[in-house]
């Protein structure tokens, strides 16, 4: 879309100097045919994978103790999902994820702001943060268990601790990359601090913070499911491990499938949101 070539009379600019005033078009990242071909190939690969697995499991190439045919997994899924037990597990897992994410957000963003305002704090704490990130916080589970009891509490806290790290770091980086000229502008129009935060900082930072928030949510999912798998007595993650111990491969795979679908769904929705935000705000 090229601007100004309708040549309105009042604007002397658009008449002659088209080269000077042509508005930039928003560029697309890749040519469309390439992306469509790539998508086709991608689907082909995924479908092909399912077909190969189906064949391998049916012919006994892959042992039943290892994996059951995808068609059987689907059948198990269909019969499991309507059950009360599944409902209870699903509710438990999803609530845990949401709460863990909320806690991660509520702790992570202020932490990011603090790290931004006091750069020294970030430098000094960096080794601790990195070490903490490498330590499975699950090791503190016994303490949390004793303090909070055998419920979702310890899991929420552990998942939240995984979630808040990318959120805090991204917030810090985002705030750091806001052009200083915008601060000068706000000063020159005599904006109050709260006006600056709400009208300038927040909208400028949001598209940059969102990728971290997305990552935080993903870690909330991963943390919750992983912790449920090892430690809990309820929840989708737990159920997968449970069926493994019961040597019920089919149902175990059904729950693995649930986890996969859940994670991929969450990721897709968040990626779509991210693109929307970039388009509208960046």
């Amino acid at each position: 879309m090229v601007a100004g070539q309708s040549g309105s009379g009042e604007d002397p600019w658009t008449r002659g100097a088209a080269g000077v005033t042509v508005a930039k078009t928003l560029t697309r990242s890749q040519p469309d045919p390439l992306r469509r071909r790539a998508a086709a190939v991608r689907w082909a690969i995924l479908v092909g994978l399912v077909v190969v697995l189906e064949a391998a499991t049916r012919t006994g190439l892959v042992d039943r103790t290892l994996m059951v045919p995808p068609s059987e997994i689907l059948a198990r899924l269909i019969s499991i999902v309507p059950t009360g037990q599944f409902g209870a597990d699903a509710v438990r897992t999803i609530t845990t994820i949401l709460v863990a994410f909320a806690v991660g957000l509520v702790l992570g963003i202020p932490l990011g702001v603090v790290l931004w305002r006091i750069p020294a704090a970030g430098r000094i704490l960096e080794p601790f943060i990195v070490t903490g990130y490498a330590m499975p916080t699950l090791l503190f589970y016994p303490v949390l268990l004793a303090v909070m009891g055998l419920n979702a509490g310890p899991i929420i806290l552990i998942a939240a601790s995984m979630s808040l790290v990318p959120i805090a770091l991204t917030t810090m980086v985002a705030l750091n990359s806001i052009k200083p000229i915008l601060h000068k502008l706000a000063n020159s129009v005599n904006a109050s601090p709260s006006q600056y935060y709400v009208k300038v900082l927040l909208p400028a930072a949001t598209p940059l913070v969102f990728p971290g928030v997305k990552l935080g949510f993903i870690y909330a999912v991963i943390g919750t499911v992983a912790m449920e798998f090892i430690l809990a007595a309820q929840g989708i993650g737990f159920r997968a491990g449970f069926y493994y111990r019961e040597l019920n491969t089919a149902d175990m795979w059904a729950y693995i499938a649930v986890v996969v679908v859940l994670s991929v769904l969450v990721n897709s929705i968040l990626t779509w949101l991210e693109k929307r935000i970039r388009r509208d705000m960046l």
């Binding site: 000229i181 000068k184 129009v189 005599n190 300038v200 909208p203 400028a204 960046l282």
Partner: peptide, 20 residues
């Protein structure tokens, strides 16, 4: 002593708010 209502500044750097 402070930014006033009767002054306004234009900077060399682009200071447009890109989301508006």
């Amino acid at each position: 002593t402070a930014p006033r209502r009767d002054t306004a500044m234009v900077f060399q750097e682009d200071s447009t708010l890109h989301w508006r």
